[in-house]
């Protein structure tokens, strides 16, 4: 096994592990805010590593075959990564804000500045 394949497999395993953690956290945490923590951070990180894997893979194929479509694939994957980085945290923020406006309280919370500011 050569080193490019090792690198690709390591990146792929990191992606699988963190996506698995995000999915488990979705069921282990008690309320919507903590679930968002698990779901957003872990799946975003896992998917970022998936894009890294595909970029490494397509660059390797480009070096071997010298077909331009693999370089095209790497650039498109980079754009997918940018789209993910912009949209995922914003979506999580929208859900958290909507949940708080609906009146769902964070479980076991010791302090809630946002609620206090709305009361005043």
């Amino acid at each position: 096994m050569t080193w490019p394949i090792m690198v690709i497999l390591i990146l792929l395993s990191i992606s699988l592990i963190f996506n698995a953690l995000g999915t488990i956290g979705l069921h282990r945490f008690p309320d919507v805010y903590t679930r968002l923590h698990a779901a957003t951070k872990c799946t975003t990180f896992g998917t970022i590593f998936m894009t890294f894997t595909v970029m490494a893979y397509s660059v390797r194929e480009y070096v071997i075959t010298e077909e331009a479509k693999f370089l095209n694939m790497a650039v498109h994957t980079l754009l997918a990564l940018v789209a993910l980085l912009v949209t995922n945290p914003t979506g999580a923020h929208a859900i958290a804000r909507a949940a708080h406006k609906m009146g769902i309280k964070p479980e076991k919370a010791v302090r809630d500045d946002l609620k206090d500011s709305e009361v005043n």
Binding site: G46, A92, A98
Partner: peptide, 26 residues
């Protein structure tokens, strides 16, 4: 049990679908 919980689940599924699409493309 609440609507935001379901939405979080949906959001996670969306991200995973994107990851699998990229994997299938490769």
């Amino acid at each position: 049990p609440t609507v935001p919980d379901r939405t979080v689940g949906l959001d996670t599924i969306n991200t995973l679908v994107i990851a699998s699409m990229i994997g299938l493309g490769a």
